[in-house]
């Protein structure tokens, strides 16, 4: 549907434009809820809807007070720091284990490959409430419930499928003759890995890592069960906020999170294209 041919009939024309309008509406549905919270987060009032002042674009109607609330409030700040302490650690764990395993999985002859893959991807598939409840009881028993370590391990497990998927995807197009060539020229397997394989799968590793990071950074069900007050993360704080004291500060937090998402998304997109270029695929 790149362009309408000059010979198109009226009916085709009508369909062409109405189809575009339909798609436009669907895109609007996708994006509007995210966009609409951004202006609302600058509301000078404690309301969740546009005030008459805002609609008149009167500067009086806007303020940064919800952002000040967020940065000035102890519980929001603690929860942000908790998130920032948990997510990177969980990411490191899942990326380390995940990358190794993805390389193993992409070897030509792996026994039980399908079964292993199914197990490794399962944290993404099993309903979160079941994972959360299971971890809650089991981690309680081994003394990990309510500890930093417990939440990190739980989040790492949830992030692993994403690392596996992205890294194996970059390895699918990997040209094995490259490692053979390296070996031919006398490189040992370790050197080959770091000098040949690693640079090529790096984009996949990083985007897998970002996925793992956002998984942990956004996760609320598991942390509600596995964590305790000391591990109250940002999503947890938002969840209680939404249930209990729904204050517009949540909108300020949401806006900041959207900004973070945009940054992560841009990075992942960039990496994906770079990876495709490196592997000699045309950027699509």
């Amino acid at each position: 549907m790149s362009a309408l041919p000059p010979y198109a009939s009226t009916g085709q024309r009508a369909w062409y434009y109405s189809f575009r309008v339909i798609c436009g509406l669907i895109f609007f549905f996708l994006i509007a809820p995210i966009v609409v919270i951004i202006p609302l987060s600058f509301n000078a009032q404690d309301f969740f809807t546009f005030t008459p002042e805002m609609l008149r674009l009167d500067p009086e109607g806007f303020s940064l007070k919800h952002y000040r609330n967020f940065f000035g409030d102890d519980s929001w700040q603690t929860s942000m720091w908790n998130s920032l302490k948990i997510a990177p650690m969980a990411t490191i764990v899942s990326v380390t284990f995940g990358t190794l395993a993805a390389i193993g999985l992409s070897q030509p002859h792996v026994p039980f490959r399908r079964a292993i893959m199914a197990i490794l991807i399962s944290p993404m598939i099993v309903p979160l409430i079941i994972s959360a409840a299971g971890m809650y009881f089991f981690y309680s028993r081994i003394g990990l419930q309510g500890t930093y370590m417990g939440v990190v391990l739980a989040h790492a497990a949830l992030g692993i499928p994403f690392v596996i998927i992205t890294v194996t995807a970059t390895l699918v197009g990997f040209d094995r003759s490259l490692t053979r060539a390296a070996a031919n020229m006398g490189a040992d397997p370790v050197t080959t890995f770091f000098r040949v394989q690693m640079p090529l799968i790096m984009p996949g590793v990083i985007s897998g890592g970002l996925f793992a990071f956002i998984t942990s950074f956004d996760e609320v069900v598991v942390v509600l069960f596995v964590g305790s007050a000391g591990q109250r993360t940002l999503p947890w704080q938002m969840f209680t906020g939404l249930r209990e004291q729904i204050s517009p500060t949540i909108l300020a937090v949401a806006t900041l999170l959207v900004a973070i998402s945009i940054m992560l998304l841009a990075t992942v997109e960039m990496l994906r294209r770079r990876s495709e270029r490196l592997r000699g695929m045309s950027p699509s």
Binding site: Y136, F137, S140, R141, I142, G143, Q145, G146, S228
Partner: peptide
């Protein structure tokens, strides 16, 4: 109840 069962009371 869960903490007690696990013998790990954090509260």
């Amino acid at each position: 109840r869960a903490m007690n069962e696990a013998g790990n009371v954090t509260w």
